[in-house]
């Protein structure tokens, strides 16, 4: 991967230094690809515009996929918090 591309991805990632309040949390730790995207797609439907969904996962591919999914679907990728065993991704619903 080109350095410029990596830098771009890191910028997209937005690492957080503390957790933020979420309106719903879904725990898919130990679930592999593509459960992070399927769950995200399903759970976001249940939220209202402006609400935040937290997804807990230990799947590394989510670092690339979740921000990209947000970009593609027009939702906001709020950021990701790294814990020793898993990541917490925060996604804000921007449209129905």
């Amino acid at each position: 991967m080109a350095i410029a591309e990596m830098a771009g991805r890191e910028k997209l990632l937005k690492f957080l230094d503390k957790s933020i309040a979420a309106d719903a949390t879904t725990d898919i730790i130990y679930m592999m690809c593509p459960m992070h995207l399927l769950t995200l797609q399903e759970r976001i439907k249940e939220l209202k515009v402006g609400q935040v969904l937290a997804i807990l996962t230990d799947y590394d591919g989510a670092l690339e996929d979740i921000p990209a999914w947000c970009g593609k679907t027009g939702n906001e990728f709020v950021g990701v918090l790294e814990s020793p065993d898993y990541y917490s991704f925060y996604v804000k619903k921007l449209k129905e």
Binding site: I28, M31, M32
Partner: peptide, 9 residues
């Protein structure tokens, strides 16, 4: 491991 059957479990 494999597909998404049974919620990926």
């Amino acid at each position: 491991y494999g597909g998404i059957q049974e919620g990926g479990r």
